[in-house]
Amino acid sequence: MTSINSRSRTLGGLVFVSLIAACGVAGPTVAQSVGEKTGANSVLGVSPTTEDFVLQAAQSDMFEIQSSQLASEKGGDKVKDFAVKMIEAHKTTSGQLKTAASGKNAKLTIPTEVSSSQKSMLDDLNGRSGDDLADQYVDDQVSAHKDAVSLFERYAEGGENPELKAWAAKTLPDLKHHLEMAQSLDK
């Protein structure tokens, strides 16, 4: 009996350790919490951690800029003006985020690449042109801005870093306006 209990505890412990490692809790290479990565925090209205907020806000800006550059070059007149506005607006917010994230209360690392899913979306856009690119770009913009509005709302409401929290609240109206503009292109 002792042998079976001992093996069960060992096996149970191995399963537990494996689950923790699989969730990314055990290693320092975790880029994003499980709640943010799966979207559970957004659905539940849970504020992201400061690290998650900075990661997602920076990646969102990079995606907006890169996808808008493609749209302004290959997407045609339907989206060109909007794309140029998005490039300028998100270059501005990228600079503001870098300043806020490097402030005396933060010292956070800004990512230098979009997420793997955003990379796939950019690759997809790059393979398109004209109205086909414009239609997909608009769909991507609506989705990306909905995500950004949720992220900024949640951080502005319950964020940990006062400077970033204030910046999120200040930036939120512009993101909501971008979402409205993207939705109007979708009609």
Results as ranks from 00 to 15, higher is better:
residue 58 A to V: 02
residue 14 L to C: 06
residue 23 C to T: 11
residue 65 I to V: 15
residue 109 T to K: 15
residue 84 V to K: 15
residue 77 D to M: 07
residue 55 L to T: 06
residue 67 S to I: 06
residue 131 D to W: 02
residue 81 D to R: 11
residue 31 A to T: 12
residue 92 T to H: 11
residue 100 A to E: 09
residue 102 S to E: 13
residue 122 L to C: 07
residue 22 A to F: 10
residue 72 S to C: 01
residue 12 G to S: 11
residue 54 V to S: 09
residue 89 A to K: 10
residue 50 T to E: 11
residue 17 V to D: 01
residue 10 T to V: 06
residue 33 S to Y: 02
residue 101 A to S: 14
residue 8 S to V: 14
residue 64 E to G: 04
residue 31 A to D: 06
residue 78 K to A: 14
residue 60 S to V: 01
residue 34 V to D: 04
residue 37 K to T: 10
residue 56 Q to Y: 00
residue 55 L to F: 08
residue 121 M to F: 03
residue 19 L to I: 12
residue 30 V to R: 15
residue 46 V to S: 04
residue 52 D to L: 03
residue 35 G to M: 11
residue 40 A to L: 15
residue 25 V to R: 00
residue 43 V to C: 00
residue 112 T to F: 01
residue 66 Q to D: 11
residue 7 R to K: 13
residue 27 G to Q: 07
residue 59 Q to L: 05
residue 17 V to I: 15
residue 84 V to C: 01
residue 39 G to W: 00
residue 42 S to H: 02
residue 73 E to F: 00
residue 91 K to D: 13
residue 30 V to N: 13
residue 121 M to H: 06
residue 13 G to M: 02
residue 84 V to A: 05
residue 64 E to P: 03
residue 117 S to C: 00
residue 57 A to E: 11
residue 101 A to Y: 03
residue 7 R to P: 00
residue 8 S to P: 00
residue 32 Q to K: 05
residue 38 T to E: 03
residue 32 Q to T: 12
residue 93 T to F: 09
residue 26 A to W: 14
residue 61 D to E: 13
residue 70 L to C: 07
residue 84 V to T: 14
residue 87 I to C: 04
residue 128 R to I: 01
residue 7 R to I: 13
residue 131 D to V: 03
residue 121 M to E: 13
residue 36 E to Q: 14
residue 70 L to T: 04
residue 65 I to P: 06
residue 90 H to F: 05
residue 97 L to T: 12
residue 92 T to S: 12
residue 80 K to W: 09
residue 114 V to M: 07
residue 75 G to I: 08
residue 95 G to T: 13
residue 121 M to Q: 14
residue 16 F to R: 03
residue 44 L to P: 00
residue 98 K to M: 12
residue 65 I to N: 06
residue 98 K to I: 08
residue 73 E to G: 01
residue 128 R to V: 01
residue 18 S to F: 10
residue 118 Q to E: 15
residue 45 G to N: 10
residue 106 A to E: 06
residue 52 D to Y: 03
residue 52 D to W: 04
residue 51 E to A: 14
residue 110 I to N: 07
residue 79 V to R: 03
residue 27 G to Y: 09
residue 100 A to Q: 05
residue 72 S to T: 10
residue 49 T to V: 02
residue 77 D to K: 13
residue 60 S to D: 08
